[in-house]
Nucleic acid binder design. Sequence first.
DNA 1: ACTGTATCATTCATATATGAATAATGCTGT
DNA 2: ACAGCATTATTCATATATGAATGATACAGT
Lengths: 134, 134
Amino acid sequence: MNNAVASALVQAAHRVEARLEEALAGVGLSIAKFETLSILVSQDRPIRLSELASKLVCVRSNVTQLVDRLETEGLVKRADDPADRRAVRAEVTALGRKRQAAGTPVVNAVLQDVANKLAAVDAQVLKRALDAVQ
Amino acid sequence: MNNAVASALVQAAHRVEARLEEALAGVGLSIAKFETLSILVSQDRPIRLSELASKLVCVRSNVTQLVDRLETEGLVKRADDPADRRAVRAEVTALGRKRQAAGTPVVNAVLQDVANKLAAVDAQVLKRALDAVQ
DNA sequence: ACTGTATCATTCATATATGAATAATGCTGT
DNA sequence: ACAGCATTATTCATATATGAATGATACAGT
């Protein structure tokens, strides 16, 4: 079957995401929330929501809702952009930093385990091939 | 980085799914709808919604909504199960068959192209590795 | 300076997905 | 026969995602 490899790729990714969701649920996060917090922590400065959308590779209306939920949980705080009155910037709170830090080893453990399961293929070769997909 | 391969896997799969969604949109379908129709066509008999959920690897409430939308579009029809009054069976309509048939080459073209992009790794070896992921 | 266009975040409608709660029906052990 | 448990689909609340429409603000060219 021509389709078999590509289908297997998509299905494997779904299983990985399911594991990540389950693992992150243990520290009160989802993949979307963890990724958002990780960007905010790594930048370590208030980020425009449109910049966040671009880094998350999603549309802005999604970020609006995501930040709504993160703000409700006290993990993120919205602040005006002094340089542009249209813009809103998101900033990670101390609790958000703590939560992201709790999620990191959890995520890494899953990703490491997945990498081990893929050991039949050279990691470098595989990564290059995957990055070449579209 | 330990994470790199597993992350690349998930991201590549997202790109594949985005391509599939875009390609299927051209024939008036989504991935979820195409997969559902494909199951109904391949079985060629009325299927219980719970059986559909099991084949789609999702929860039943999702199937209820999916079949709602498919039924609204006239691609699927609900029918009572004469053997079990709790059950509802879904059946593909003639239009549903036509739509699924239109989607098939579109999906195969994308999957084939993805397989080509993965050609640096032996397809059999890669498939086995991917299937071994959890 | 002003007009038109672009950009920003939000809101709304919708699709996909989960999980809890519910109601109807089926089945098993006594 | 029936009590208790299991199964079925649906509904509801919610999360994640998209895209169109909106309103506010910025900016470019005249």
